[in-house]
Simulated scan of single mutants.
Amino acid sequence: MIFGYSTNAFVKYSLLDSFDMIARLGFAGVEIMCDQPHLYPPEYDNAALTKVKASLEKNGLKPTNLNSFTLFAVGDTYLPSWIEPEAERRRIRVDHTLACLEVAAFIGCRNISVPPGGPLPENMTRKEALHLFHQGMDQVIPKAEELGVRLLIEPEPNLLMERTAEIKPFVSEIQTPAVGINFDIGHFYCAGEDPAAAFEELYPWVGHIHIEDIAPTREHNHLIAGLGAIDFPSVFTAMKRSGYQYDMSLELYPYTDRPEAAGKDSLAHLLPLLREAGLHD
């Protein structure tokens, strides 16, 4: 398992500068934000992507995941979504996902993470939203299968899917290994679940993990590891027991003013726990 750090904590720096900083902290991997001000696909041609690959190689960083969740370039954290009433808005999300799949294949990243539908629109039933999400996924799954890049749905507090009982039926109904789950440990805690139990139940579909701490209030606010209430040893034990073989990325986007310090402190807290669980050398 490679432990990476997401560039969405480094939005005050360029993408390539963030690689340098993450490598200096001692991370072996990096999750890349596929949005402005980092790797927004329309702004990166093959020549620019070749420079990205060269920088990753120079820094000895493996791309653990492409974070294709936000769309600040044309919207915000959640919108345009898969489930908006307007077809042209849903098309933006589909096209962005297709472009991110192409980028992942080019730079050698085996998965991208996508939002779980989106915020439920007013006057839309859950059944209607799930139907639209299925329609959107049907438009991107063939490309994912063709390129060998997995689409990992990330449950999120207050969106269409935030709990095990909501994401499990959706992914289990899609009969392709190209679709899985980006398991954000803190998100399941925010949703009132035991992350370790949720991981064990969803393990067959988990292709990447986000890690951060969350306060005892379960408010959705990513914290430096060790400052919250998440029982990391129980989660790591569940990962080891399940035989988890993929990667994990630290996601600390609230710390844009001090991403290096936040990463350093989190790494110092988590590495001993990962080693004790047998998940890190």
Rank of each mutant, 00 (worst) to 15 (best):
P80Q: 12
R241Y: 04
T176R: 07
D138R: 09
Y244K: 02
V140S: 05
S113R: 03
Y255P: 02
A23N: 08
E212C: 11
R91G: 03
K12Q: 11
P115A: 09
L147R: 02
G263M: 11
E162F: 04
H280E: 13
E156N: 04
E43V: 08
I92G: 02
L120Q: 11
Q135E: 15
R126P: 00
A165S: 12
F199Q: 01
K51F: 05
P119V: 14
I2T: 14
H220D: 15
V140P: 06
C100V: 15
E57H: 11
T7M: 09
P85I: 02
D45L: 10
T125G: 08
I153F: 03
M33V: 00
E260L: 12
A73Y: 00
L98G: 05
D20A: 07
H96I: 08
F199M: 01
T125P: 03
I22T: 03
V179P: 05
H134G: 10
Q36D: 12
G207S: 11
K53T: 14
H220Y: 10
L202R: 01
Y189C: 01
N221P: 00
L66S: 06
Q135V: 06
S172Q: 14
H269S: 10
L270P: 05
L132P: 03
M239Q: 12
E154C: 01
P119I: 14
N8I: 15
F19S: 02
A99Q: 13
A105T: 06
I211T: 15
A87S: 09
D17I: 00
G26C: 02
G207K: 09
T256F: 12
Y13P: 00
A129G: 09
M124F: 03
G192R: 05
F72Q: 11
E166N: 05
M33E: 10
A229E: 12
T64A: 04
L16I: 15
C34T: 15
G278M: 07
P119C: 06
E146S: 07
K53Y: 04
I185S: 02
L147I: 01
I2F: 06
M248T: 15
G180L: 10
F188A: 03
N123I: 00
I107Y: 06
E128G: 03
P272K: 05
A225H: 03
P115S: 08
V235S: 00
A238Y: 06
E84S: 05
S234H: 01
A261M: 13
P80N: 13
G108A: 07
S55N: 10
K143E: 11
D247V: 01
R275K: 15
A28F: 02
L274M: 14
D265P: 01
R150S: 11
M21T: 08
